[in-house]
Design a protein around this nucleic acid. Structure first.
Lengths: 351, 351
DNA sequence: CATCAATATGAGATCGATCTCACATGGAGT
DNA sequence: ACTCCATGTGAGATCGATCTCATATTGATG
């Protein structure tokens, strides 16, 4: 049998005072005599008392808990890093995080929202929300919501990344190295939703930057160099899209000299195809990744557009806290900037 | 102001019955008239009632929550996969998981334990517990504990992996391919703790298998081919140990023909060094990884000893549930088997 | 028709911490 | 001496769901 752990009442009895007095000592509110305080503190030690967060939450209507609904963090380290950042920043403010994987399904996502409502989390953060209805449920329950890298509805806080600027920086780098025949391997533009405030999806923004960059230097755009597909294949769970796209690109009569990818995971697939074809990087081909997740462990280490993953999580949590402490403030949108990290996968155009 | 969400009382009033009756309908326990049941269900719909898990937990002394303390899941996908598996299996049984990173510190780990005690989780699962004192705190609080891949103290459930067998399988593969001059790149043997039931650390078990395998075919063991180091360098947060070890091995007068690594992350570093040296894999060198985490995204795709990551998490959760439902049962230790996955990084010895 | 069991419902205690309010004490100020 | 206020403490309500126990009604049974 589980020995019931000590409660406030046990401490009170031990110290010979009332529960109210013990509560005052522990929450440091109200007047307490010096001698009494010491007796209570001693009693806390003797009984091994630990507050029951359930009981406290019931009374105070605050759970000091944040719900985080994320996309599959085992498939893309991006999500793991953001989750970690939220957890870390939350702890620094006394909050624990409930992590929930939406598992690529609207229904799962809504199930997660139900969970969080029932557990009365103080706020919900979404990394890549899918279903506007999920957000509507939370609105109905008057719970603060923060969206990361999405803007499904305009009535919540959001932390976005300037994907256009990120892709532009990557492209500028390649162009400066002299490349003009640059391929684009990106994700499905329709995979990620658009909104009134953000008419272009994440993928489209990156592709826009690609086109604009080429146009900016007067280079022609060859549609055969643009490959858009799903990041993950459901059948084997890993990225094979980048591999397939690269294979196809290598069979073109006129190969590209550089590749810009919309994601490190795609870039990893491309590298595998390049390795099989016995091409050296960056000598025979320059490759730029996006996200800077697996970029550092690949061979060669990848030049990549780094997303501010830690910043994203941290900012999201801070927005959530602001909403919690200050219910009803105007929803904010914060846009963060990615930056290019140059490593060993890009080099000047030869010849 | 936050509109207080509907409570049992609201539903009761709406349906014109008592709270007890509503509770009976919702928990499907006890007698309820058919007509009353319908009225209550309608009232639940009308009021948008959602149970308050805090209140329920306070009364039932069950939170339907599992605490999971893990090592840094952003640094090694192994931890992310295990965490995901626990989350998934927990949800299937009505449990939510609190994930907590021990951040490589005993003090952090203990802080996590305190959190979990205060939040009254029903059980705590550790992926790589560090500090026996953490376990002692939980024992004092009479909370079920499951250790994954560790056996710090013998008085809790544990799910282990047969590392010796895994390493043996990897070595057998290389030996069968004709390799005899095989290097070993592994983690610090003292990094992971030993215990009375498990006198050899995880790293030592793998190294033991390496030595025994070579001895088994009458090959000599060259200590210059054995490199043990820390998996992660604190300064840059990524694995550089595998890279450095490989560099050194390549400078030996008599190079190895194959490399056995204790972790995919180490193998990734080794691949980077091999890439720089312009060696082809598996033609010039065979490489075997461990864990099967990043093995599939590297170039070439890595032959690796796969840990049963999903199985580990699932089994741990099930052990936890057994303890919860059946307090006081004898602690169990379950040992799972890894298995070798052959991909494109190993080939027969040339010449 | 009396009795008993099955069915149906409600009143009120309970889980543990917090918070309001009442009350008691003592010293300062007039 | 009397008021006033700062200080110190306790009684009891409260948060929302669950659970025990009491009570009421119905139908079956001998």
């Amino acid at each position: 049998m589980k020995p019931r752990s000590a409660t406030l009442l046990d401490v009170a009895r031990e110290a010979g005072v009332s529960r109210a007095t013990v509560a005052r000592v522990l929450s440091a509110g109200g007047y307490v005599g010096e001698e009494t305080r010491l007796r209570v503190e001693e009693a806390v030690r003797l009984t091994g008392y630990r507050p029951n967060v359930m009981a406290r939450s019931l009374r105070t209507q605050r759970t000091y808990t944040i719900g985080h609904i994320t996309a599959e963090f085992t498939q893309n380290p991006f999500f793991a890093h953001v989750a970690r950042s939220i957890e870390r920043e939350g702890l620094a403010h006394g909050y624990k995080t409930f992590l929930y994987n939406q598992d690529g399904s609207d229904a799962h996502e809504r199930a997660g929202v139900e969970q969080f409502i029932e557990r009365r989390v103080d706020a919900v953060i979404f990394t890549y929300p899918r279903d506007p209805q999920s957000l509507a449920m939370l609105r109905a329950a008057a719970m603060p919501v923060v969206q990361i890298e999405r803007d499904l509805t305009a009535d919540t806080d959001a932390v976005l990344v300037d994907n256009y600027a990120g892709a532009a920086a990557g492209m500028a780098h390649l162009l400066q190295l002299g490349h003009r025949r640059i391929a684009f391997i990106g994700g499905d533009p329709d995979l990620h939703p658009r909104s009134s405030r953000r008419p272009r999806s994440v993928e489209e923004e990156r592709l826009d930057a690609y086109r604009d960059a080429l146009a900016g230097v007067g280079a022609s755009i060859d549609e055969k160099l643009i490959w858009l597909g799903r990041y993950y294949e459901p059948d084997n769970g890993i990225n094979i899209a980048g591999y397939r796209a690269m294979k196809a690109l290598l069979e073109l009569p006129e190969r590209p000299t550089a590749i810009f990818t919309g994601c490190d995971v795609l870039a990893a697939g491309a590298l595998q195809a390049l390795y099989e074809a016995n091409l050296r990087i960056p000598d025979d081909m320059s490759v730029v990744g996006f996200d800077d997740t697996t970029a550092r462990i690949l061979a060669p280490r990848l030049t990549s557009v780094a997303q501010p993953m830690t910043e994203l999580g941290k900012t999201a949590l801070q927005l959530a806290l602001t909403q919690i402490d200050n219910s009803g403030v105007e929803p904010q949108t914060i846009i963060l900037s990615p930056h290019l990290i140059v490593r060993n996968s890009t080099a000047p155009l030869r010849g």
